[in-house]
Amino acid sequence: MSEILKMQNLNKRFGRKIVLKNFSMALEEGKVYGLLGKNGEGKTTLIRMIMGVIPADSGEMFYKDKKINFNDSSYKKQIGYIPEDPFFFSWMTIKELLDFNSSFYPSWNFRKAMDYSERFSLDKKTKIKHLSRGMKLKLGLIAALASEPQLLILDDPTSGLDVPTRQDFLKDIVRELSDAGTTILFSTHLVHELERIVEHLSILHGGHLILDDDYERVKDLTRRVRMTFEDSLPEQIEMGGILSELKKGNRMEMVIYPWDVEKERKLNMFSPLRLEVEPLSLEEIFVSFVS
């Protein structure tokens, strides 16, 4: 599998605030990447840098093994981008915007754009400033997908939308995946939907990735361990991989990554009354990693 996008040692600061520090990440073709991170932690900055909207302070990026500089533009023809806040020219109508957008992409599929518009029931003559958030999302989707991109980058596009809309959106993404096998970089802090489609999980925290692994593996290896003790809780449990710890009376809860039999044995040595191990949802995994 080849790498469609590679980022090496990216650094970016805004004034005194360092947002990205020696950030590195690589995307393999055809997979769905989930990029999680708390709000304001640099996800949007990173994506903007990939899209050449703002420059990195230092570091390099490669698209299909070709170095991309801030002023390169041709690699963007293969990328579809849906940002968090709708950012089109508010005076344009839907038709005008799609028309305008199409002129940038030689691979623009007019048929597809039309099909999507019909399916979404978008009135072409409506001005963008009169569109609801949900409709703008749909428009953003068309704008990104009609160019038949090889890489689709989504920057939290569904925040602020209701669940049915989010579900619909996800369905469209899934359909796109089935049809084209597009590589997807999905950045969000609403992890619930991501859970269904993510294949590779990356968590951005403190300016770089604290987790960058196959999702199934992570899910497999992250466990919540609940222990009930007869008397007092053990003072200190010396063990690697404790992401979080919660003590309440004679009960103790820990999230551990990576979980293995060795760790289970170690915990049993503290002689708990009960030891329960359960998996976590992606949301819980994320929370544990970043807190």
């Binding site: 769905v32 369905k171 359909r175 089935s178 939907e193």
Partner: peptide, 15 residues
């Protein structure tokens, strides 16, 4: 089909 099932379940077709 993979496409239909993925669509129905709203999951990654690769899965």
């Amino acid at each position: 089909s993979i496409r239909d099932l993925a669509s129905e379940l709203i999951i990654n077709p690769n899965t």
